[in-house]
Write a protein that binds this DNA or RNA. Sequence first.
DNA 1: TTGTAAGCGTTATCAA
DNA 2: TTGATAACGCTTACAA
Lengths: 317, 317
Amino acid sequence: MVTLSDVAKQANVSKMTVSRVINHPEQVTTELRELVVAAMQELNYQPNAAAKALANNRSNVVKFLILEDIDTTEPYYMNLLFGIARGLDKRQYALQLITDRQKLTAGNADGYLITGARTSDFPWLDQLEKPLVLFGENRYGYDFIDTDNKLGTQMATKYALAKNYQSIIFIGIDVKEPFEYSREAGYINTLQQHAKLPRIYRLANHSRLSQQYIEEHWREFAPNTCFICASDRLAVGVVRGILHEGGAIPRDFGVIGHDGVFLDQVSNPQLTTVQQQVPELGEHLARMLLSKIAQSGAQQGELLLAPKLVTRGTTRE
Amino acid sequence: MVTLSDVAKQANVSKMTVSRVINHPEQVTTELRELVVAAMQELNYQPNAAAKALANNRSNVVKFLILEDIDTTEPYYMNLLFGIARGLDKRQYALQLITDRQKLTAGNADGYLITGARTSDFPWLDQLEKPLVLFGENRYGYDFIDTDNKLGTQMATKYALAKNYQSIIFIGIDVKEPFEYSREAGYINTLQQHAKLPRIYRLANHSRLSQQYIEEHWREFAPNTCFICASDRLAVGVVRGILHEGGAIPRDFGVIGHDGVFLDQVSNPQLTTVQQQVPELGEHLARMLLSKIAQSGAQQGELLLAPKLVTRGTTRE
DNA sequence: TTGTAAGCGTTATCAA
DNA sequence: TTGATAACGCTTACAA
């Protein structure tokens, strides 16, 4: 294994000069810096993360806690995880996946990424001693990153209006969480701007339930209606319900989902959906946490990433 | 931060005794050991992974390389990842996710977990200097863990026969990989034992293709046929094709998938499928790699985990 | 600007 | 069986 000392010898300088070239290059003269850089390349020097971590009183590990039930976690998290991994990689950070909150404080970590946190979790979040970034909106001042949920449903609703669907109905998820409020708000705002009355139904997030709902209330839905759904799961059920009742998609009925991960593509027809930029969200999560760690816990604020409206088979051309 | 020294003081012993209690407890007398354990608990001692790693010339990091295209990786890997995480956690190991093989040897790691490796990858795998375990069958002597693919299709085929489907057709994935050969072998064996002739069709792994295939060859399939599919994707397409042609599932046509992750449940009707024990596979992967690391790279052999046949709506009661 | 020395928390080695 | 010492590779603090 090539160490700092090896590089130092090769470049005829002290270990410290090599260390400075890596961490504070501006403190080193250009000639020495170039000598050292050349030596590092020649020897293919790979810094030892453990030694660095020990000297810095760090662990170079970040924990990712998923509070939602795994069985229900759709493919979504896979993409998020890859984004996080990409963000951590650049700084040689590794990841620990946690599903049991008890294990969060066991072992070492420099900070925490937490998803699925609800209001009831905030008390124990406050007890944590390491920097923390949430994935998902909250209104209590925790740093977070999320999709711009409001913008997403605004885009979807505007699109449905532009495609001349007369009646626009929102199928929401029956939870009292900020992401759902934001999605509903985007829908309501846009309708109001067009002097239309909102119609919102809320269901647990299962395709079976939304399918059943559509079938049972079929007579209430006139042709020329578009359903804006708070998830692709709900959207898939709505599509099935409409097809089961003999409705024509996309001619008489439009359906727009939300999330845009996997399910939208395997469904038939493929869903028009508000696609979250999941890997990018993950990468920003990692970046925000690392910079919070570097700034010894300083507040980072919030970051909303714009989603993309992907138009496919469940809305008019 | 509580260190070994703190515990040592508290217990009135030397650091080394504390270290031994942790790593070689059999070398310490019972009384001292109890004293030390008590002190560790009282102070809530958490070993410093970085220091341990440095002293052991380890990194306490394992890299997980995914060679397949992420976009096509279904939810499957999420579960695998959680299994791996669980296996690593117990020994305070952290994970780095890699999708770019170039990055595998950048930075530090004590070993590699690799999935999606094909024969063409073996040359560069041989160049790797750290212990390595593959996820997925291979016949070149690399240590690996996989589902017992042959057993899975045997179970599926026997079940179809037991349910009195007369004709049993295999819809395979059109790749030349051991897992596919094993799945086909399980099907062929079982049919031969029942003096029936195998019928195998191979397609790329997309539901659209299998649906299309069924529709285009519909007249070739007599009622009382069961399709054994090499993936849930293919199975979902087969179901759609049958329904589209007006076939009755499960009365006249049975469909059995393979994998049992997510897709089987969101499909309608829910699939009968050969369900892989994915989190367990992940946990065993981690365990095998850690023990290989501990044994400085000793051969670990192969491990096949039995899948479960989950019977649902696409086969007869 | 560069180098020296000490220390981060742990473990292996060797001596008692 | 237990303890003192040195070492792992790096960085901070201080000296030159």
